[in-house]
Design a binder for these strands. Structure first.
Ligand code: FES
Ligand code: FES
Lengths: 136, 136
DNA sequence: TATAAAGAGGACTAAAATTGTCCTATAAGG
DNA sequence: CCTTATAGGACAATTTTAGTCCTCTTTATA
């Protein structure tokens, strides 16, 4: 099983493209999609989520597009994952909007919640800047 | 998104039940399923995978059932996850049987593969014994 | 040896999630 | 006011997950 779904993967690729030349430009989805070889409409919907999460900003109209709204060093892979595919949990029980009627009696959860926190921290520590920095 | 699917969750619960009283008993799926409040047939299929992975052993016939074949301290959550739901990867590209035609040129992979290894190590470090030890 | 109690294994299904596509609306520059 | 771009939602195809069911094999024991 993979942790990163297609849409998150696409989002990461687009963000890296944007982070590479920090000209402050606005990027049109058509171009990002071509360069990342990714379905355009799907990418656009995904970028809209990043916009709502405050990771990028959208501008409509001619000369419009998407633009980073943060320093790439301050955008973590976790931020992107959670913006695109929702909260990251080890077990379904630990998701707020699902929950578990057995939570109080459950004997598995302490250790697993610990592991979940470690995992979250792990992906919080990898940033777009680092991804963009690989091989120049 | 959650890392542990239903079948892995069920498997963990069954393993913890087995680990709790180390009488060396053989456990019938009907009983495990009742105690863990889990669908019996589905649990049986899941336990069959644990058997193939060498984590438990099955015995057919009357007085048959499943039995731990290792010390619970030597069964990690990762072992169970991989036995039940296959290899754990950060990105689809990193799964052997899927792969990626862009792998050589890809600029995202180094950091992400590093994170993947950390994640694997993390779940390798949590054992059934620890899960079973919670609250007596 | 007949019977019954288990798991083995595969076919099948239902439901849910993922991964898209498409159409209309809205915003803004020129 | 025309064109370029995103916004947003409805829709569809595919894949995955989760589960059920049926038949077969193994084995203890009456
Ligand atoms: S928290 Fe739900 S069963 Fe453990
Ligand atoms: S390894 Fe497949 S695109 Fe990065």
């Amino acid at each position: 099983m993979e942790l990163i779904r297609r849409n998150t993967d696409y989002a990461l690729r687009a963000l890296v493209l944007m982070a590479k030349d920090r000209t402050g430009d606005v990027y049109v989805v058509t171009r990002l999609a071509n360069e990342a070889r990714v379905p355009e409409d799907f990418l656009r919907k995904t970028l809209q989520r990043l916009d709502k999460a405050g990771i990028i900003e959208s501008k409509r109209g001619p000369k419009g597009g998407f633009q980073l709204s943060k320093d790439p060093a301050r955008i973590s892979v976790l931020d992107v994952m959670e913006a695109v595919q929702g909260p990251l949990a080890v077990n379904r029980c630990f998701l707020k909007d699902i929950g578990c009627d057995n939570f109080n009696r459950c004997e598995l959860k302490e250790k697993l919640i610990g592991a979940q926190q470690d995992m979250v921290d792990l992906f919080k520590s990898v940033t777009i800047r680092e991804l963009a920095a690989e091989r120049g």
